[in-house]
């Protein structure tokens, strides 16, 4: 009975792992095929479509734009999130609970609706579509996240260190920069990283708020109009590879931190 349950569990786990990995394996496998269509049978490895991706200036500039928007919007989101988290955690403010709720409110609204709201507003005010407009949208979705992560990590033990610094004559801004920021570095780093990955992968806001210059997910979307295309496989595999490297690096960083 026990052995039977064990076998059943193993089979179930393997089936689900198969389901989870099936599309990724198919994606990567057929990106390595030289034929015009990424469909079976597999006819042997070739880097033809990777070369085609790297030669496609629309995709490479899309990549640059994506990095630009991800870094820029994450910097703004982390800075605003950290400052407000510190303000709410350390000082008494009237209406604090309501204001904190307001900052985290965008978390409950879908990206589509946030993007549409900005589109309608920018349209009324006359702000043209641009990468900056998409960046603004990315800050809207990532600021609550950064705020929530950093606010939750502001423990009481840090208050004493800050008090000590103040007693030794440091000004508020000096305390912030020389004491609080270094102590909060893991939470700041984690929220920055999370913002980066969300912004990097975000489609619908960028789709609505950019026009000629756009981000990589939107360029990939444009590729999809041509149907099944090995170039899409290649660029998708590249994006996947970059993400995996980032995630593994993040894991190793955290792991080393925990051990030391």
């Amino acid at each position: 009975m026990r052995a039977f349950a064990k076998i059943l569990a193993t089979v179930y786990a393997l089936l689900l792992y198969g389901f989870i990995f099936l599309p990724v394996v198919v994606l990567v496998l057929f990106s390595l095929q030289a034929t015009q269509f990424p469909i079976p049978p597999f006819t042997g490895p070739s880097t033809r479509w990777y070369a085609a991706v790297l030669a496609d200036t629309r995709l490479t500039t899309g990549l640059l734009h994506s990095i630009l928007v991800a870094v820029g919007s994450s910097l703004v989101a982390v800075t605003l999130g950290f400052l407000s988290a510190w303000g709410f955690a350390r000082f008494y403010l009237p209406g604090s609970a309501f204001l904190r709720g307001l900052i985290t409110l965008p978390l409950t609204v879908s990206y589509l609706i946030i993007g549409m709201g900005l589109l309608v507003l920018f349209n009324r005010v006359g702000i043209p579509k641009s990468l900056a407009a998409a960046g603004i949208g990315h800050v809207v979705v990532n600021l609550p996240l950064c705020f929530a992560i950093i606010y939750s990590q502001m423990g009481d033990h840090q208050i004493n260190i800050e008090r000590a610094a103040r007693d030794l004559g440091a000004s508020e801004w000096k305390v912030l920069l020389l004491v609080t920021v270094p102590v909060m570095a893991p939470a700041i780093f984690a929220s920055f990283f999370l913002s980066m990955t969300f912004s990097w992968d975000e489609f619908v806001i960028s789709f609505l708020l950019t026009r000629f210059e756009t981000t990589l997910p939107v360029e990939i979307w444009n590729l999809l109009r041509s149907g099944l295309n090995p170039k899409t496989n290649a660029v998708g595999s590249l994006v996947f590879g970059v993400s995996i490297v980032l995630v593994v690096a993040f894991e190793l960083l955290l792991f080393r931190r925990k051990q030391s």
Binding site: F21, P23, L27, F37, F203, P217, F240, I244
Partner: peptide
């Protein structure tokens, strides 16, 4: 490992399923 494909781009993940489920797909 169980959440690794989580990190592929969202658009690409949907497209991958299209490859799997297409008329001449796997």
């Amino acid at each position: 490992l169980a959440v690794l494909p989580f990190w592929t781009s969202y658009v690409v993940r949907s497209y991958s399923w299209l490859l799997v489920l297409a008329q001449n797909g796997v």
